[in-house]
């Protein structure tokens, strides 16, 4: 399923980040994507499913959550090293990355959600 990924800041995630960015709590709050209920059911995605998000810039596995409000076509992700896997490294002449308007696909996967350590390992590979 095609979606537009928009990142945002969440207070619970910010709190977890202050406390321990290597902790499980921070990962739980960060490695998630909020999907529209109807979109998700059409794509066979359930609340709590692991999903693979892929953009032109990268891919990442996170946990799907279904939003209370409807927002067809949009996928909201807390701003984090997980969402940053999808953000283009190429920028326009302003040199300000586009964090809030990314085309991506999303589908169910049996792969696991990477830990911060996994992301770091990949960063230096």
């Amino acid at each position: 399923m095609k979606v537009t990924v928009v990142t945002f800041r969440d207070i619970f995630q910010s709190e977890a980040q202050e406390l321990d960015r290597f902790g499980e709590e921070y990962r739980k709050m960060s490695a998630v994507v909020f999907l529209d209920k109807n979109d998700a059911s059409k794509a066979g995605i359930k609340d709590g499913s692991n999903v693979l998000l892929e953009s032109d810039n990268g891919r990442v596995v996170v946990v799907a959550r279904l939003s209370e409000d409807s927002h067809p076509g949009l996928a909201f992700m807390p701003n984090s090293p997980w969402s940053n896997r999808l953000i283009p490294a190429e920028t326009d002449e302003t040199k300000i990355p586009s964090f809030k308007n990314i085309s991506a696909t999303v589908r169910v996967t049996s792969d696991g959600v990477p830990t911060v350590e996994d992301l770091l390992r990949e960063m230096v590979s």
Binding site: R21, F22, N57, G58, N79, S80, P81, N84, R85, I87, P88, A89, E90, P97, F99, V116, L119, L120, M123, V124
Partner: peptide
């Protein structure tokens, strides 16, 4: 914590550079 907050492709470029970091906390 730019390794955490930059788009991964740019963070990857930064990770190749020798870094000195001043921070109260452990970060990426």
């Amino acid at each position: 914590d730019p390794i955490s907050s930059l788009p991964a492709g740019i963070a990857k470029a930064l990770a190749r550079v020798p870094m000195i970091t001043l921070d109260p906390h452990r970060t990426l």
